[in-house]
Design a protein around this nucleic acid. Structure first.
Lengths: 385, 385
DNA sequence: CACTCTTGGAGAAACGTATCTCCAGGGGCT
DNA sequence: AGCCCCTGGAGATACGTTTCTCCAAGAGTG
């Protein structure tokens, strides 16, 4: 077996120090070839169980860890997927819906890990060298703007891209989004049924899909039912501006008797503004806001919220992406006939496959005229309806 | 120049399809050698500017992107650092202080990107193959428990490890933490000055550094000033349990007249519990809780919070880690003589260098007997004192 | 016996880059 | 003229895997 032990003949004469054991060292120590070690460790090839376990034992003893870089280079798979948030302003992270993003990222990370992938967060505005230095098997993009050059380049170079938020003109492998129009219409209907006569909207100035579709749905509804739109806009990434806009909305001469706020902090801001103007919620003002935070279960009064179900979205997006990477449809419930990396899809085959995820309206006291309970109740866990 | 154009002689006879351009293609197209391309693009070697720019132009034209995997294999640097949260329970992510973690991770991501690194979130409980499949230049570990096998192995294999939270027995390259004892003592003093006679504590059952040090500081203070400890514990990762524990604390016969809650939701939970028992805040009950959320600026009344300054911690931790990776002390303000990867440090050289970061007490109405303003005030941005 | 499978495994070629070594040639200096 | 240094750049090797190809020897089969 001296031949086998000597087969790493390329190694220079200088003895290595305390470097990590490589596959060659394992092969030498086990008296087999590199091929055998690789096969034994990866469960491939045709080897008797005895050899397999012996090799594994030797590898364990030497503390062998395969080099991720070498494996990636050889196989073309890094096990890494990117999570990109397209930044609008100058801020490094412009999370219009912060809790939403946190939840979504958490779910995405979990889903990725569950399938053996790791997630790396990469704002689109990152230095180009960071983007170029990382081998990504695919990318999730949150709400890409039209003609995003980053997305286009990724797509062109064959990296699967799945977007959270229906993409405008970007070519993506697939996308997932809420049905924002349905959600807004549902809320408006809910408020109308609770007795609202004039519903106002607190919305954002940015042009992302969420803001745009929601606002359009509101305006469309107003046109349909014949109500004059009553809304205020503000830059959603600026928390201070939100409080001011909430105040502005309630200070209007045509003050609404119900408000839907598109962003997370709108609930507390509107509540504070209402308090300043002596408006009782829900008696004088019905309130709903879009939020993933459960602080609204314990405010006074508790506030009805719309959840965009970020966990479901994050999970779905990642699963779609990994399906595309692996060329498999693992049955995520999406009725996509073919979901392959872009190089396999004929150009002009129509829009990329998309999925609409449902939202959830969590009804609390702020949107019901008759407050369900005003008596002191025994302690109960928050989050309950 | 046919020799140069033909130097990729190893390429098989079959013509490649539409694969990405490699460095060889650029070399051939520019009529230079691979060496020259590499040097030109990386700003190394001695080349006239003319050659350099010509090569760059050709590379650009071909859409050349260097292979991250190959570069990593060659240089031993991946540009990736891990962010590990050690999980205590069965949950994939047990963030005892969720907003804290989110902020910290955000700052860490920014800091890393600013120095050309990307961050990968990897729970310690991830499948081993995920850990093994990723080339990490270093790792940030959040609050590692004593004898964490993961940290030990990382350290042994020469990967720099910097921990957020003073490590128990784990060998780490460096660590950063708040001065939890000083923070708690400061709060107790603050409450005492506001007139508290019996201060209670809402704390957790887990054994992480934060919980342990804070609780010990409280107990030590009680012993010193001769107050009987009044505290309740609950599993911090369970939000429902927090509300119950808050209620339990206020239901005690020896009900405290001031409470400090260690975790983010404690403020609202305690406020709700106080309301149930008819206790006015701050008149009957002084309240402080540790939180990074600014919802406490708009609660009724606003609640005094302790901020652990997660952004500073995240930034510092990442900078220390990258300093260690690059073998540089970039002047993060930490007085560490030597901060090198473990293989350069002699064993038994004493404890790893640590840094204590200050905390910040944001005083609001809930911890001041005389509420500063009870009149209706004009709208102002949240977050203001 | 002559052959075809099957088993167990070895050899070597990539993957794409960075970098060490070395070389040709020209100009300045003695 | 002879020598040295400097410039511009080419060649080759190594990074550590995975995997394709191929081979030897034994086992079955006609």
């Amino acid at each position: 077996m001296t031949a086998a032990a000597n087969q790493s003949g390329r190694r220079p004469t200088t003895s290595r120090r305390l470097e990590r054991a490589g596959i060659r060292d394992v092969a030498a120590a086990a008296g087999v070839s590199i091929t055998t070690v690789s096969d034994a460790l990866n469960g491939k090839g045709r080897l008797p169980d005895e050899t397999r376990s012996r090799v594994r034992e030797v590898a364990e003893r030497l503390g062998y860890r395969p080099s991720a870089a070498a494996r990636t280079l050889r196989t073309g798979r890094s096990g890494l997927i990117g999570l990109t948030v397209t930044t609008y302003g100058e801020e490094p992270f412009t999370f219009t819906e912060f809790a939403y993003f946190a939840e979504m990222a958490r779910a995405a990370t979990s889903a990725a890990l569950g399938r053996g992938y790791a997630l790396v967060v990469l704002p689109a505005s990152s230095r180009h060298d960071v983007w170029g230095n990382i081998a990504l098997d695919g990318t999730v993009v949150i709400d890409p703007p039209d003609q995003d050059p980053l997305v286009s380049e990724l797509y062109r170079s064959g990296v699967p891209v799945v977007s959270d938020g229906k993409p405008g003109n970007c070519p993506v492998t697939a996308w997932v989004d809420n049905d924002h129009e349905a959600a807004v219409l549902g809320i408006l209907e809910h408020l109308s049924e609770a007795g609202a006569r004039r519903i106002g909207l607190l919305t954002g100035t940015s042009t992302d899909t969420y803001t745009r579709l929601s606002t359009e749905a509101y305006l469309g509804w107003c046109a349909k039912v014949g109500q004059e739109p009553v809304y205020e806009t503000y830059p959603a990434h600026d928390p201070a501006a939100g409080a001011v806009a909430a105040d502005r909305l309630l200070a209007r001469p045509d003050r609404p008797d119900a408000v839907y706020g598109l962003f997370d902090p709108n609930g507390t801001d509107l509540l504070a503004a209402a308090r300043r103007y002596g408006l009782r919620v829900p008696d004088d003002l019905l309130l709903v806001c879009c939020s993933e935070s459960d602080v609204y279960a314990t405010t006074e009064p508790p506030i009805t919220t719309l959840s965009l179900k970020p966990r479901k979205i994050g999970t779905t997006v990642v699963n779609l992406l990994i399906d595309a990477i692996e060329g498999v449809d693992s049955g995520t419930g999406v009725d996509i006939a073919r979901l392959f990396p872009p190089r396999f899809r004929t150009a002009g085959t129509g829009p990329p496959p998309g999925t609409l995820m449902p939202t959830e309206l969590i009804v609390r006291a702020s949107s019901q005229r008759r407050s369900p309970r005003t008596t002191v109740s025994p302690p109960r866990p928050p989050g309950e309806v």
